[in-house]
Structures are given as C-alpha cells and as structure tokens.
Amino acid sequence: MEYFTRFMIGGLIVSSFTMLGDVLRPKSFAGLFSAAPSVALATLSLALLKEGDGYAAIEARSMVIGSIALFLYALIVCQTMMRFRCSALGATILSLPLWFAAAFATKFILLG
C-alpha cells in the first residue's frame, strides 16, 4: 500500500511539472521544470511523515550532491546535442554514467 501511495503521488506531481514544462516558452525556461523538485516533494513529505525530520534532513543533504551531478549531466547533454550527431535518447542515456560517477564520487569525498 505504501508503494502504491508513493507511485500515485510521485506520478501526479511529476506529470504536473512536465505538463507545465510543455506549455511554457521559451524552451530554455521550460527546461527549468525538468529540474523541478517533483520526486523530492513526494519523497521528502512521505519521509517526514513516516521516518521523522532527521531522516528527511539526511536525504536533503545528499540531494544537494545529487543536484551538482544533475548540473554536470544536463551540461554534457546540452553540449552533446549541439556538437555531435546524436539523438536525444542516445545523449541522455549515454550521459547517465556521468551522473552516477559525479554523485557517488562527491558523496564519497564529502560524506564518506
């Protein structure tokens, strides 16, 4: 039941932000909504309710590191699309290892 609730809340919030991104122009402004805290809003709210504020604070601390990784990831996707003959699917999937490397290496350095 908990996972079903997570699924519904997450799906609803993510869909709302992506629809907002669809209708907004210019494209670069709409892109801000691809980095909206949609999954975070659902997850941190549920974590606060079920696990308490200490647990949610630890998640948020790691999220700062995840955001740095997202910044690098999006920058690489942008440059790949501009400079190489690559599809959107190819560029976004091939750049994913960079997100993992940046996120886990920074976590290891800063938090152990």
Binding site: S28, A35, L70
Partner: peptide, 20 residues
Amino acid sequence: VALDAAGTAIGSIGLAAFAL
C-alpha cells in the same frame, strides 16, 4: 533538446537551493 538541457542545468542550481 539542447535548450531544454541548458534550462535543466540552470534549474539544478535551484534544486540545490531547495535541498539546502
């Protein structure tokens, strides 16, 4: 797609502010 990705990179700074 490149412009959307640039927007996402900019938005990730806001995301870091959210987390902080």
